[in-house]
């Protein structure tokens, strides 16, 4: 069947794929033509070979790529999930109830501008070296967008809808759960996606805290061992998994909010 819709879908896929092919093609070519030395930049094909090798080889960083990846995923998920569990309710409460807003906003506004990396020294002293400290750094990075988006989302609840519910006899709690939260959900989801991005992007920094395993650690080790292929492999895996999980969150969002994107 050939119609407008399949044509536009086909066009989208074609543009997606050709964009990727061009990116990797140029990269491959630059190395193949010797414009940049192979010692500095490794071609995608060589990275792929390293990937195959790292599935079983533990040199130079002590673990296979699978172990590094799973460890990093676990770390990011702990920090990210915690930040959602605490950040989303906090933002919603702050946005809906004035006393909560007055109480929490000053603290939040002071914590917000501190970059996650600035926490590292104090976190090592308090939590020691290990997964707790690393997860905390990721938590801090993911926490802020969760709070801000939930807060902004629920504050934008239509006053008329609140009136509708109020005149129908809704209590303040019902207004919060039945009107405020559902109307904030699209923004909450945006916040969650941004949070995930921040969490994943902070991974390498968090694993600088004396890790012995993880993608960030692998990149560090690759650098020390002058193995640009290992460094680029670590970067590639971070990029691919980040994109895949963000896509997964978008699918979840569509499932959770079926009333959006309707024709």
């Amino acid at each position: 069947m050939y119609n407008e819709k399949t044509r536009s879908v086909g066009m989208k896929v074609f543009l997606n794929v050709s964009g990727l092919l061009m990116f990797f093609g140029i990269w491959e070519l630059v190395v193949a033509l010797g414009l940049i030395s192979e010692k500095k930049l490794v071609a995608p094909s060589a990275i792929f070979m390293t990937f195959i090798d790292k599935l079983t080889n533990v040199v130079p960083d002590g673990n296979t790529i699978i172990v590094h990846t799973l460890t990093s995923l676990e770390l990011v998920l702990i920090g990210f999930v915690l930040s959602c569990l605490i950040g989303v309710p906090l933002g919603l409460l702050m946005g809906f109830f004035k006393p909560a807003n007055r109480f929490f906003t000053p603290i939040f506004e002071i914590i917000r501008p501190i970059p996650p990396l600035a926490w590292i020294p104090i976190v090592i002293v308090v939590l020691g070296i290990g997964i707790q400290a690393e997860a905390f750094i990721i938590f801090v990075a993911a926490f802020v967008p969760c709070v801000i988006n939930s807060y902004t989302g629920i504050q934008a609840t239509s006053k008329t809808l609140l009136d509708v519910a109020k005149t129908a006899g809704a209590s303040k709690t019902q207004l919060f759960f039945k009107v405020g939260i559902p109307s904030a959900l699209p923004m909450v989801f945006t916040g969650i996606k941004i949070s995930f991005g921040s969490a994943w992007a902070t991974l390498v920094a968090a694993e600088m805290i004396a890790s012995t395993v993880g993608l960030g650690f692998m990149i560090q080790q690759g650098r020390n061992a002058v193995r640009p292929d290992i460094v680029l492999l670590g970067m590639s895996v971070i990029g691919l998994i980040g994109a895949a999980l963000t896509g997964l969150l978008s699918i979840l969002e569509k499932k959770a909010l079926p009333w959006r994107n309707l024709k």
Partner: peptide
């Protein structure tokens, strides 16, 4: 109450 701008709950 019937509102000028409908005031329906989009998610319902």
């Amino acid at each position: 109450f019937v509102f000028q701008r409908y005031a329906l709950f989009n998610w319902k």
